[in-house]
Write a protein that binds this DNA or RNA. Structure first.
Length: 772
RNA sequence: GCGCUCUUAGCUCAGUUGGUUAGAGCGUUCCCCUCACACGGGAAAGGCCGCAGGUUCGAAUCCUACAGAGCGCACCA
């Protein structure tokens, strides 16, 4: 049954008007999927011996299993499917791998929120096992939705190779990777000041912070009356953890104090402050003297490390105070701030109070105010020379292939952003205190106790010791313990040293750790598979520029380390799709327009075309329903052009050598051929926005408006030879136009192709122009 | 503070390495339901391509300064 056409009295098919996308698309997708041509093993009928060197491979950036597809995904699919269909039609062995991302923090916090809303329960009430069960259930559902939506977009993905960042194969890849990096000293556990998200109750990496400008008070004050130097801060409550005041070594005002130590009583808390000199202090800023808070500032902790200062934690994981002063103990930081300022004011210690605009750090996923805290966490060392990689560091491995253009980034100016990011990169904190995700493959002997290991043991790690209120014993070092922790790819239960039970580290890995392996974990790593050999490095990585650091950089890093090769040759970065007000429309924000609503209304082809045409790489774009509508009109135009051409009898089956073309028709075919060449080059060089516009313009304003109109005259008055020539030319141009349009608008073109009575799928027809 | 991008028709945006009358979609005006298509056809209006210099035979396109918008990173004592 096909409501797009009917058989007339002669038995010939007649295309009905207008084109009905809703009726067509699912049927056509099924046809493609069942043909097997989404997989690289099935090559087009016209290439009986696909050249092994001519492969085209790509991974789909795995959507998060947090919900539904948004316009950004639709754009990704549209652009990537254009590339994939184009290469398939040119005879490349073409592979495009689908998958989904478990998106640890995003997914867990989403499910937790839902459970809390419905049942009033928190994660602790459910327990690890039950919460994970609930999350997995949600993820499964979400996954199915996403897969269906992806298919609706017409994506010619090889579903037989579908992967999930948290499935068994990918988990093995992650554990293997972790161990290998640990063994090479690239992963370590250390006590450092990290970004703590009090709302999500987990650490986050530097890249997961977003900054927001807010008005804040900037206070200048002294710790006590007898302290000689004033300091300034926006966060007086952290000053309870000060252990030094740093000044610039060349600052004449403070030179005489350097090296002195003071005991002060600051708002009822006893502090021991040393005056130190450090180059990093800007004498122009504030009072030129900096109160050093090693426990609650990354910068200060680095100063503390240089000067061997003690670290005192005064704020806990719930962003509440942990100091002996009963007025402050357990107070929220904001409350503590007011109390402290009030006290300073009363005692005449507050010297200045001014309003400034200042960036506060928020956790990207939860919106919680990030609290720098000292914590024992796992890190990836980005500065350690790697022996088996010619003593290059992970930073080098990220930088070099882009620097020497082994990897091309489009648009090219993102290279600078990329290098800038690498220059400022610190060690990557990879452990998370959430339950959903890859649990660290680290096992501790229960007898030895789990919580205090820092390893590998180094002098640097030993130096930083926390002193808490109330003071606790110094953490034992792993050296002193008899049973060493074990990193193991396969789960183990008994301690090989003492035979006692082992306990697995409760933390999970940053989602991006598993995503970073994606180009090769999807191809079978750590196994040395044929896929890995054939399709890696992948040809292109197409994604949004906002995850250049999160994902692209880390894939380059991991691929460089584990395989010694680049993960992809070209990075194509698309812009962010915004709503009509120019606001970001994306994953967690909830203002996303469902692309499926648009495809239902206007057809997938129209949505794809509207997302691609006129959208330059790296540039944001707004969703405009009118534009989508316009391309629905275009789909219908193609439909009607086909109706007209198909009405011309006796031409369809005429062969090339049986026809004598008029000079005029030869010119028309030449013109088309040169356009095809042009468009081919545009697609090869990633100018999809231009290629789409060119074919659009030709088909409508040249082929339909001029050539077809002119043909009407020929069919009315021309000689039989002229008519035959023209009919043949029209068929030729129509067929080749359908081929060129196919990557952009796969459904309507395939539908017409099928209604023309073709035996093969348009999807695997030969591209009209083999340029070069 | 360091760096990046943008500023083109009323609106949203293209313009590939500098080259003839600067393009698309929507919108606007007029005419036409002409035998593929009104999800259509024909015609038209509308742009000193942010501002000021410079390079060039020639610049929306390259260089410099300025103005406005946005973004990234860092800082935020």
């Amino acid at each position: 049954m096909n409501i797009n056409s009917e058989k007339n009295s002669n038995g010939a098919r007649k295309l009905l008007k207008p084109y009905n996308s809703a009726e067509t698309e699912d049927r056509i997708y099924k046809l493609w999927e069942e043909s097997g041509f989404f997989a690289p093993e099935a090559h087009p009928p016209w290439t009986d011996n696909p050249n092994k060197d001519k492969t085209f491979s790509m991974v789909l950036p795995p959507p998060n299993v947090t919900g539904v597809l948004h316009m950004g995904h639709a754009l990704t699919i549209a652009i990537e499917d254009i590339m994939v269909r184009f290469h398939r039609m040119r005879g490349y062995k073409t592979l495009w791998i689908p998958g989904t991302d478990h998106a640890a923090i995003a997914t867990q916090s989403r499910v937790e929120t839902e459970i809390y809303k419905k049942e009033g329960k928190r994660r602790q009430d459910l327990g690890r096992e039950e919460l994970l069960r609930r999350i997995e259930e949600f993820a499964k559902q979400s996954h199915d939705t996403i897969v269906n939506q992806t298919k609706k977009m017409g994506a010619s993905l090889d579903w037989s190779r579908e992967a999930f960042t948290l499935d068994e194969k990918r988990s093995l890849a992650v554990r293997t990777a972790f161990k290998k990096m640990y063994d090479q000293g690239l992963i370590y556990r250390g006590q450092r000041v990290i970004n703590w998200d009090p709302k999500g109750q987990t650490t986050i990496s530097d890249d997961e912070i977003v900054y927001e400008e807010r008005k804040t008070k900037f206070y200048t004050f002294r710790y006590s009356k007898d302290f000689p130097i004033s300091i300034a801060t926006t966060r007086p409550e952290t000053k309870l953890g000060d252990t030094a005041v740093a000044v610039n070594p060349n600052d004449q005002r403070y030179k005489k104090y350097i090296g002195q130590e003071y005991d002060v009583d600051f708002v009822g808390v006893k502090l021991h402050i040393k005056i130190i000199a450090d180059q990093s202090v800007d004498p122009e800023f504030g009072t030129g003297a900096l109160g050093v808070t090693p426990a609650h500032s990354v910068i200060d902790s680095e100063i503390a490390q240089r000067h061997n200062l003690p670290m005192i934690q005064v704020i806990n994981e719930y962003a509440r105070m942990m100091v002996p002063n009963p007025l402050l103990k357990d107070k929220k930081v904001s409350e503590a701030r007011e109390i402290i300022v009030e006290t300073l004011r009363k005692e005449g210690l507050l010297e200045k109070e001014e309003e400034i605009i200042h960036n506060i750090a928020l956790a990207e996923r939860t919106g919680g105010v990030v609290e720098p805290l000292p914590k024992l966490q796992w890190f990836v060392n980005v500065n350690k020379p790697i022996k088996e990689r010619k003593n290059k560091t992970l930073k080098d491995l990220m930088r070099e292939p882009v620097e020497n253009s082994e990897i091309e980034i489009i648009p090219d100016h993102f290279k600078k952003t990329y290098f800038h990011w690498i220059d400022n990169l610190r060690d990557w904190c990879i452990s998370r205190q959430i339950w959903y995700g890859h649990r660290l493959p680290v096992y501790y002997c229960k007898q030895a106790g789990i919580s205090n290991f820092q390893f590998p043991i180094s002098k640097q790690n030993q130096k930083l010791k926390i002193k808490n209120f109330p003071p606790e014993a110094d953490p034992p070092s792993a050296e002193k313990l008899e049973c060493q922790p074990i990193i193991s790819i396969e789960p183990i239960k008994k301690c090989p040293d003492c035979g006692n039970e082992l306990e697995q580290d409760p933390d999970t890995l940053d989602t991006w750790f598993s995503s970073a392996l994606w180009t090769f974990s999807t191809l079978g790593y750590p196994e040395k598979t044929k896929d890995l050999e054939t399709f890696h490095p992948t040809s292109v990585l197409e994604t949004g520029y906002e995850i250049l650091f999160f994902w692209v950089a880390r894939m380059i890093m991991m691929s460089g380390f584990f395989l010694g090769e680049i993960p992809f040759r070209t990075v194509y970065l698309h812009g962010t799709i915004r709503d009509s007000k120019g606001k970001k429309m994306s994953k967690s924000l909830g203002n996303a327009i469902d692309p499926l609503d648009m495809t239902a209304k206007y057809g997938t082809d129209a949505v794809r075309m509207s997302l691609v045409v006129g959208t330059a790489p790296g540039t944001d774009s707004k969703v405009d329903e009118n534009k989508i509508k316009a391309y629905r009109h275009f789909a219908n135009k193609i439909w009607n052009i086909s109706r007209f051409v198909l009405l011309q009898k006796n031409a369809e089956h005429t062969r090339n050598d049986e026809i004598i073309l008029t000079e005029e028709d030869k010119t028309l075919l030449d013109e088309f051929s040169s356009l095809a060449k042009d468009i081919t080059k545009d697609i090869e060089e990633f100018r999809f926005y231009l290629a789409g516009e060119k074919i659009y313009h030709y088909v409508w304003h040249r082929f339909a408006d001029i050539i077809l109109e002119e043909s009407k005259g020929i069919f009315a008055k021309g000689s039989a030879a002229e008519q035959n020539s023209r009919k043949w030319a029209l068929f030729k141009i129509l067929e080749d136009s359908l081929k060129i349009l196919h990557p952009f608008m796969p459904f309507v073109t395939e539908e017409i192709w099928q209604l023309m009575g073709k035996t093969n799928l348009l999807m695997v027809e030969k591209w009209p122009e083999q340029a070069r």
